[in-house]
């Protein structure tokens, strides 16, 4: 950008972005917006992990669950979440609810898919031997299937974690009173690109930080499993 490949108005220099970030950071407004976003992102992601993980394992384990849930999951997932706004607004309005729903829907599939594929790859022999040793169905599920699904499930959650940051921005871009996505839209509309990219980068670094913490925790979990 220093070479003038792109006009400085559209892609400001990194130093301009950094100083714009500093100006934002001394204003409590930025942190209020970040808190609003993290609440929505966290709620949507937590729902996606709990519901998506349980659903994925249940889909691999019980045929009826698979039959009933898979068409819905498969149809909802490849949908741009912003296209769903006319529908979600009908149910939940423009508030936190519709944003959390969109984040939840977007984050759910990687988790479900990871859990489903992981649980399915659990070796039949393991299941049989556990059964023959007298383990109940639920015991087998918990002691054999879930642990063997764990690596894929954990990678699914990593993907969902990253997606949750992208989704919270795109859900807040459209309609919002607060949030980092709101700030990006607000600053972009006014053409304040250095500050806008400062917020974009801030989202990326929050995601980076979350990813690092998550990877640490995940490696602990995997070690414990071994």
């Amino acid at each position: 950008m220093r070479l003038g490949l792109v006009s400085a108005d559209v892609l400001p220099s990194l130093s301009a972005v950094a100083s714009a970030w500093w100006n934002l950071a001394i204003d409590p407004d930025l942190w209020r917006n970040a808190a609003a976003s993290l609440y929505r992102g966290g709620a949507g992601l937590a729902l996606a992990i709990v519901v998506g993980g349980a659903l994925g394992i249940a889909m691999a384990w019980w045929r009826p669950v698979n039959a009933l849930a898979s068409p819905l999951v498969e149809m909802l997932y490849p949908m741009p979440k912003s296209a769903l706004i006319p529908v979600t607004v009908l149910w939940l309005g423009f508030g936190d609810g519709s944003k959390i729903l969109l984040i939840f829907l977007g984050c759910m599939l990687p988790v479900t898919l990871g859990a489903f594929n992981g649980a399915r790859s659990c070796e039949q022999a393991l299941v049989w031997s556990a059964r023959s040793m007298g383990a109940s169905r639920l015991n087998v599920l918990w002691d054999v299937v879930v642990p063997s699904a764990l690596p894929e499930l954990l990678n699914g959650i990593r993907t969902a974690l990253a997606l949750s940051f992208i989704l919270l921005v795109s859900s807040e871009l459209i309609v919002a009173r607060a949030g980092l996505g709101y700030l990006i839209g607000f600053l972009g509309e006014g053409g304040v690109y250095d500050a806008m990219f400062a917020v974009v980068l801030m989202v990326a670094f929050l995601g980076f930080f979350a990813d690092r913490v998550y990877m640490l925790a995940a490696s602990r979990v995997l070690r414990w499993r071994d």
Binding site: V6, V169, V200, A204, F205, G207, D211
Partner: peptide
């Protein structure tokens, strides 16, 4: 990857279009 993955990349669309 950890920085790039969660980055809202749609914000770069105007730049990509200009290029």
């Amino acid at each position: 990857i950890s920085v790039g993955f969660p980055m809202p990349k749609i914000a770069f669309l105007p730049i990509v279009t200009l290029w």
